[in-house]
Amino acid sequence: MSDSTPGQPPVPQSAPATSGWAAPSARPFAPPAGYSMPPGYSAPAQQRGAGAPPAQKRSAALGVVPLLLSLFAAIVVPVALGLAAFEIGQGALTQNVLTSAQFSPATLTPVREWVLFAEIAFWVGTVCGTWALIQGIVAIVRRRGRGAGIAAVVLASAGPLIALVVIPSALAVGATMNASGSL
């Protein structure tokens, strides 16, 4: 079946090629007799037995950026909106206005700067939160900064809920302090 000499492993014989294709041999081809490797040459990594080349470390910035944006949108913006709501409640609204069915926008005239500040903070928070949500999903899908991307999606989703609690509470506290004359 195979030619072998004592002390050497048997050399497999290849099957006759009937279909034009021959099975690869188990051993790589040896260089011809008298051939030597050029100076400074080393065999490729797969032939050295090192396995697959090391994978490149992927940047986690794709997940960190939306995490920072979501922290801004879920913490800083609701605090700014709460401050504005407190000042609006304290400067313009009274307990009667909060419980009455009629409301006039003219009531907000004394605190129009705070109303503008609240509107700008709301839209900045909306843009940052939406950006963080989308980029966080992309980071999760691409597996680049996946943990930070998950945290960003959770925080960006919780931001509006946090604002929905902070704004009416601060508005009511400001209006109550104005009505009671504490400040």
Rank of each mutant, 00 (worst) to 15 (best):
S42L: 11
G159I: 05
L116P: 06
T109M: 03
L62Y: 04
V111K: 03
G174L: 01
I137C: 06
P160R: 02
G174V: 03
V11C: 00
P10C: 03
A45Y: 05
Q95Y: 08
L98F: 08
L155M: 07
P39V: 10
S182Y: 09
I137R: 08
A163Q: 10
A101L: 12
E119S: 12
A17F: 06
F86S: 02
S25R: 04
L81M: 13
L98I: 13
A74R: 01
I167V: 15
G145L: 01
M177C: 08
P6S: 02
A22E: 12
G49F: 02
I88Y: 10
M37V: 02
A172C: 09
P160Q: 07
K57N: 09
F103R: 07
A148P: 00
Q47M: 10
P32N: 15
G7R: 02
A26F: 05
Q90R: 15
K57I: 14
M177P: 10
Q56A: 13
A55Q: 15
R144E: 15
A26H: 09
V79N: 11
L108D: 06
T5P: 00
P38W: 00
L67I: 06
P168K: 00
P105N: 11
P53R: 11
T18M: 12
L93P: 00
Q8A: 15
R143I: 09
G82V: 10
S180N: 10
G51P: 10
V77D: 03
L171E: 04
S180T: 12
S104T: 05
A61K: 13
I162Y: 02
A84C: 08
P16F: 00
V115K: 07
V127I: 15
R143C: 08
P24H: 10
T109C: 00
N178P: 00
Q56F: 04
M37C: 00
P24E: 14
R146F: 07
A158D: 07
G7H: 06
G145I: 01
P39C: 05
F29P: 07
A61R: 15
F29R: 13
V11H: 04
R112S: 13
V124S: 11
A60I: 04
G149H: 03
S182D: 13
I167P: 13
V64G: 02
I88C: 03
V141C: 02
C128G: 03
A106H: 14
R144H: 10
G20E: 05
S4Y: 03
G20C: 08
I75M: 06
T99Y: 10
A151K: 02
S104Y: 06
F72S: 12
V138G: 05
G63E: 02
R143N: 12
A52K: 11
S42D: 14
P9W: 08
P160T: 08
C128F: 14
A121N: 02
T126G: 06
L62V: 09
Q95L: 13
F117G: 09
Q47S: 05
R27T: 15
A26M: 04
P66Y: 01
S100T: 04
T5W: 04
A30E: 12
Q135M: 03
A80E: 13
Q95R: 15
L69A: 09
I150S: 07
M1Y: 01
A73Q: 09
S42V: 13
A30Y: 01
L62D: 08
S2P: 02
G147F: 01
Q56G: 01
G20F: 03
L116H: 14
L155D: 04
T130M: 14
W114F: 12
